[in-house]
């Protein structure tokens, strides 16, 4: 019976430390930060003035938002 518990714990630890989980978590954090603060990473799809666009330098400047080339982020909110 204890081997089942050990296997489950191993599976949970493996899941949390796996590359896929880390990538999914990073994507979630970046999306949350974009929606919450208006600071969006390159590659994220979000709405600016109701239009869904992919964040990159070109789109950021096209919609007259501030592009941070150091972090590759676009500030889309006027707070």
């Amino acid at each position: 019976m204890k081997y089942i518990y050990v296997s489950i714990i191993f599976l949970i630890v493996f899941t949390f430390f796996s590359e896929e989980f880390k990538q999914a978590y990073d994507a979630f954090v970046n999306l949350n930060m974009c929606i919450d603060t208006g600071i969006c990473n390159e590659g994220i799809k979000t709405k600016i003035d109701g239009v869904l666009i992919e964040i990159n330098e070109e789109n950021c400047k096209k919609y007259k938002k501030i592009w941070n080339s150091e972090n590759s982020t676009c500030i889309i909110k006027n707070n």
Binding site: N32, C34, I35, G38, C40, K45, T46, K47, G50, K77
Partner: peptide, 11 residues
């Protein structure tokens, strides 16, 4: 709902 809308102005 907020995440699915992907619209930060609705935050």
């Amino acid at each position: 709902d907020l995440l699915s809308e992907r619209d930060g102005s609705m935050d």
